[in-house]
């Protein structure tokens, strides 16, 4: 009955099916998030990680932790009853990526083109 109700209705974001399992879910989420947070601060601080790789490692840890929050706290799953939520989330991620990486790309390109070259310096009066 539970399953028959849950699937065709679609599931609201943040809704969990089973109360007794959820405390455990939140605890797992808290543990994983704490480990990933500490790993981020350690990676930025320790100097043991190869310097140029640190930003990439930090990005990976951050994306991982966002995933942990989505799955264990917001209860977004890949199941069929979550299709609408996942679609909306995918569109949100798409827009965020466009805005952030698009801005960075355009501004870096502008900066590079605005850099005064020797030829343009001579053209100035």
């Amino acid at each position: 009955m539970e399953e028959q109700d849950a699937a065709p209705q679609g599931r609201a974001p943040g809704r969990h099916r089973d109360g007794s399992r959820s405390v455990k879910t939140y605890l797992i989420g808290l543990g994983l998030a704490a480990i990933l947070t500490l790993a981020s601060f350690w990676a930025a601080q320790s100097g043991l990680v190869y310097g140029p790789a640190v930003p990439i490692l930090l990005a990976a840890l951050a994306v991982g932790q966002m995933g942990v929050h989505l799955v264990f706290f917001l209860h977004i799953s890949s199941g069929p009853e979550d299709t609408n939520n996942i679609l909306a989330l995918a569109f949100g991620v798409f827009v965020v990526g466009l805005v952030v990486f698009g801005s960075m790309l355009i501004m870096a390109n502008l900066n590079a083109n605005m850099m005064p070259t020797p030829a343009s310096m001579q053209m100035q009066p």
Partner: peptide, 24 residues
């Protein structure tokens, strides 16, 4: 319940788009 929570989920995603602009 589903309509309200899904609508709120859309609001949250649009709020995150605002933050994306500030992050950029």
């Amino acid at each position: 319940e589903i309509v309200a929570r899904f609508g709120f989920w859309l609001f949250l995603l649009s709020d995150i788009v605002i933050f994306a602009a500030l992050f950029a």
